[in-house]
Design a protein around this nucleic acid. Structure first.
Lengths: 169, 169
DNA sequence: TATTGTTATACTCTATAACTATA
DNA sequence: TATAGTTATAGAGTATAACAATA
């Protein structure tokens, strides 16, 4: 892609970069320059993250599953019996918030909390049979969403991105 | 302070990823597998975005500037005279929310709203003299934050990331 | 009628604190 | 005492709707 290379530290007056090729450039879309914002990883990542979440929500709208719900079900599905603390820590969700997430998933009969016998303070989390079935469908839709990402940034770029960010999972 | 990783015995065997090379893999950090979550761009991007915002906030804590405030000041600084609508659209912020952001920045004497003569509904946004001075300092700190990103993912990976995500700015 | 800035409301998410029942 | 789950509250952030002034 020809997108202008990351300019580092450009305290330059700025602004209108002409798109001589007629292709819409980020900075040219409205003639408003971002100046130093271009070249900030956080800004690009934030905008991308918003796009990707919106596409996820859109793609899984028919099953009414949000990214966080998906991540919770996926982890439980892959590690049945985990406690709420373990899931919360693994996904970086506050345990207080996980309570509500699980309440909702349990109401929908996708997940169940089973009282642990070894430590009666804790719950062992499992998918219900219906949860297993549903998760299979969710994963199919999530894969479709991943294909949207590929279409957006390119197959190789997506792979590279995952490689670069592997340490954050 | 981070209560050491959940070292409790994991109730169930579970999905361990091959770590034949002995290198610590994300999935092995706590023995909890993410299964399909690994390979989801959205998850990795989200976790990275959280990290990067936290580092930004930490690095600019001394000047009490959040990422959104920084982006607003940067755009105004690079394009003095913009209306609130223009800034909101450019940054993907709700115009209702921008009102509060500007209220706060104006209270701190960093930004000023000037009534437009051509269209008396709108305001032309400018940095104050103090705002200009401050922004210079903010940019210095933001550059320091970018270096943290480099240290975290590597210089070339950061460049590559910016290149891949250039279309989202 | 439509748009700019504003106010207000609701819902999500994050961050805490405190409570209970266990350990 | 400490921990797992829960409840509650406050703060950001997001999404809307509606209103006044102006176009």
């Amino acid at each position: 892609m020809t997108a202008s290379a990351p300019r580092r530290e450009t305290p330059i007056p700025l602004a209108r970069k002409r798109a001589s090729d007629g292709k819409a450039r980020p900075n040219d879309a409205d003639g408003i320059g971002l100046d130093a914002l271009v070249g900030h990883a956080g800004y690009a990542v934030r905008r991308f993250q918003i796009w990707i979440f919106q596409d996820f929500v859109r793609t899984l709208a028919s099953v009414d599953i949000k990214p966080t719900q998906y991540s919770v079900m996926t982890v439980i599905g892959a590690n049945p019996g985990l406690t709420q603390m373990a899931v919360a820590n693994r996904l970086g969700i506050e345990r207080a918030r996980l309570v509500h997430l699980l309440d909702s998933l349990e109401r929908r009969k996708l997940v169940k909390r089973i009282k642990s016998k070894s430590d009666r303070r804790s719950h062992a989390l499992h998918l219900t049979a219906q949860g297993e079935t549903s998760l299979t469908k969710f994963k199919r839709l999530a894969a479709e969403h991943e294909r949207h990402v590929e279409e957006k940034i390119g197959r190789e770029n997506r792979e590279k991105l995952l490689e670069i960010l592997a340490g954050f999972t």
